[in-house]
Amino acid sequence: MIGKLLSTDLLKMRRTGIWWVVFIGPVGLAAMQALNFGLRYDYLVQDRYASDPWAGLIGETGMFVPIAIYLAMTLLMAMIANIENRQNAWKQTLALPVRRSQVFASKFLACLIQLLVACVLLAASVAIVGLVLKFEGPVPIIDLLTLGAYPMLASLPMLGLMLWMTLTLRNQAIPISLGIAASLVSVFGASMPEIVPLAWPAVVLANGEAALRYSGFGIALFAVLYLLGSIHFSRKDVA
């Protein structure tokens, strides 16, 4: 059943522009770095990161990854929820023979798939920037893939919150404002204490050894929020 639900959710996303967000986010980040490294090639590639230009490129991109992920989670979930909220289609969807928990799960999976696609796109487009700038050495495929994936896992609590709020609240302004505020604050993640979940994606990027641990924290906190959201969604009255 979850497969059927997911396939309908993907069908409902046709012509909504959601996939453009998935595409433009990572490609935009890479384009920004192409400009950065292209304009300051002499300083960045031949001086500052001369020993390992790939690591330099990944590091510079990484500075913008947390805010991009938070924004993506907010925007994608708002768009996914909007499909059902706009014409009040919830009453139709939930009057079908489906479990509410599965409807909730399907919305989550749809968003997760989009985030994973964005991670892969980010890896690919950053690799292309490096190759075009003729960086030496082999392409660090693992580092490129984890550039998006680890911070994404560490940011999952945000997705849990967004999932909960966008799918249960009538007023979408609340989750969207909250998501944008969190995205902006996350820029200063590196200077926040590590106990604050908003700092986790930055921690993951700055400290390779802590990456798995903080990704784990992210998943754990997400699981709690997901469960609460799912229970609330399953029990609430549909107006």
Binding site: M1, K4, L5, S7, T8, L11, K12, R14, R15, T16, I83, R86, Q87, N88, A89, W90, K91, Q92, T93, A95, L96, P97, V98
Partner: peptide
């Protein structure tokens, strides 16, 4: 239920398809 629910960005066949799959 009350005023109709629909997905405006989809055509009629696609709208029904979202329900048909379920």
């Amino acid at each position: 239920v009350e005023y109709p629910s629909y997905y405006g960005h989809l055509n009629a066949v696609e709208n029904l398809e979202t329900i048909r799959r379920i």
